[in-house]
Every structure is written in C-alpha cells, then in structure tokens.
Simulated assay, not measured.
Amino acid sequence: MSAEVRSWALVTGASRGIGAAIAEQLAAAGHGILLNYRSNHEAAEQVRARIVEAGGAVELLPFDVANADASGAALASVLESDKVISVVVNNAGVSADAPFPALEREAWDSVLGPTLDGFYNVTRPLVMPMVRRRHGRIINISSVSGLIGNRGQVNYSAAKAGIIGATKALARELAKRKITVNAVAPGLIETEMAAHAPSKDMVKLIPMRRMGTAQEVAKLVRFLASDDAAYVTGQVVAIDGGLT
C-alpha cells in the first residue's frame, strides 16, 4: 500500500479529537497518513481502522513529540524509507489549567513541551526534504487562547501564542521554496479536551451560540494542505464562531 501513495501527511496527536478528524480528512484527500500518538494505542487503532475502511492508507507512528530522542529516531526511520512527507500537521498538545499563582512548574513544562518542543522536534527534520522538493505544507494547530489569552491558562496561552510566532517566522523563511506555513486557531470545539470546560457560559460569548466540531477544523486544515492554498502562508486562521 505504501508504494502506491505519492504523498504522505504526518499528523501528530491524531488518536482522537481534532487530530483524528484531520487524519481522516487528509486521507480522504488522497494523502497517506502517518498517524502519530503518544500512548493511546487502542484509540489510534480505531482511527486507523476508519481510514482503511474508507479506502485510505495509514501507518501508526507512536512517539512522544516532546521527547527529542524519540522523535528523532521515529522520523529517521520514515526519512530512510521511500515515503514523501509533503504535509506536516503539528496538532499534539495538552492542557493543565490552573490560576497562575497555583501553576506548578510541572504543569508549565507538560503543556509547553508538546506544543513548542514538539513543533521543533517534528518539523525541523522534515523541512530540508521539503526544501529540496520545493513543496510542502506545514500546519500548526494553535488556539484562540494564543490570540486573546484565557484565565487559568497562562501555560496553554503561552504555548499556543508561541506556535503562532514560530509559524509566522518559518513562513517567511520558506516562502521562496514554495512551502507554506500556517496556523489554525480553534475556539471552543466539541472534543474530550473541552469536556470539562464551562461550555454553557462560554457558548454565550460566541456570536454563533454554539461550539464548533472537530470536522469543521479538519476541513479547514484540508484546505490549507491543498494546492488551492498555495498562496496562503504565514496566516493564523481562527475558527471560533466569531469569538475573536
């Protein structure tokens, strides 16, 4: 199956939620999927099964994006194969909310690691192959918390704002090589991560008066990964029902 796929997309944190929806949308667009996850093998297998059932190609690629050695080893094995990775979606991330005076160092590191270290660990090894091919799509999943901040989320807001800065800087570096780099900033989305949020109160602040869906975010990512978005780079696209 791998030999028949011309283009592969690596999606991190893709065993559930937005990441899983993105993997399925990119598979439907014709990309082979390298489905990254850290430890939830059962959930990853379920996503893999859905993609295969729909006629797509997918391989599981488990590693912790925050771990430089693990990331390097996993990606080296991919780069040594015949797979051409043309799309990278940096979606992996966690939240550990607390008022700032109660925010422990462990909670700070646990949130910034997957987002910022993960971006570096995953993206850097894949950039030069894209440069040599003069083609690539790098899409980073940020958040409206990185745009406007959110109480109790200093760590999460810092991580997501940092990925926006990285997106804009890298987009300028790679534009002349025909590689686009964009960020997607979801608002309140119906996922497991948002399950504990005070959704009723927050929904009142959203002009559309509803939460978004993972599929709506995934379809935006699918567009940014497509040839139709070849002239879109360095952008942060909020998908939040008008919240920002």
Rank of each mutant, 00 (worst) to 15 (best):
A3V: 13
E4A: 15
V5G: 05
R6F: 02
R6E: 15
W8C: 09
A9Y: 08
T12L: 09
G13N: 07
A14F: 00
A14Q: 01
A14C: 02
S15I: 01
S15T: 02
G17T: 07
G17D: 01
G17F: 03
I18T: 09
I18W: 11
G19R: 09
G19T: 05
I22E: 10
I22W: 09
I22P: 11
I22A: 05
L26G: 03
A27F: 11
A29G: 05
A29D: 15
G30L: 06
H31L: 09
H31V: 02
G32H: 00
N36R: 00
A43L: 13
A44T: 05
V47L: 12
R50E: 10
E53F: 03
L61V: 14
F63T: 04
D64Y: 03
V65M: 10
N67D: 15
D69Y: 02
A70L: 09
A70D: 08
S71P: 00
G72D: 06
L75D: 02
L75T: 01
L79F: 03
L79T: 01
S81R: 10
V87F: 04
N91I: 09
N91L: 06
V94N: 08
V94A: 14
V94F: 04
S95K: 03
A98L: 01
L103S: 00
L103D: 00
A107E: 12
A107V: 01
W108Y: 05
S110F: 03
V111I: 13
V111N: 04
L112R: 00
L112C: 01
T115Q: 13
D117E: 12
F119K: 02
Y120H: 15
N121L: 03
N121P: 02
V122G: 10
L126M: 13
L126S: 08
L126Y: 07
M130N: 09
V131L: 14
V131M: 10
R133N: 11
R134W: 01
I139M: 11
N140D: 13
I141C: 07
S142I: 05
S142R: 06
G146H: 11
L147S: 09
V154W: 00
N155A: 15
Y156D: 10
Y156P: 04
S157T: 04
A161Q: 06
G162E: 11
G165I: 08
K168D: 04
K168W: 03
A169D: 03
L170S: 12
A171N: 08
I179K: 02
T180V: 08
A185Q: 00
P186T: 10
G187Q: 05
G187I: 10
L188C: 12
I189F: 13
I189N: 11
E190S: 14
E192D: 15
E192M: 04
M193E: 09
M193D: 07
M193Y: 01
A195V: 04
P198S: 07
S199R: 15
S199L: 09
S199P: 00
K204L: 14
L205S: 14
R209D: 06
R210E: 09
R210G: 06
G212K: 08
A218G: 15
L220N: 08
L220A: 14
V221M: 09
F223R: 06
A225T: 03
A225V: 02
S226C: 07
D228I: 01
A229I: 06
Y231H: 07
V232W: 07
V232Y: 11
T233S: 15
V236M: 12
D240V: 05
G241I: 02
G242T: 06
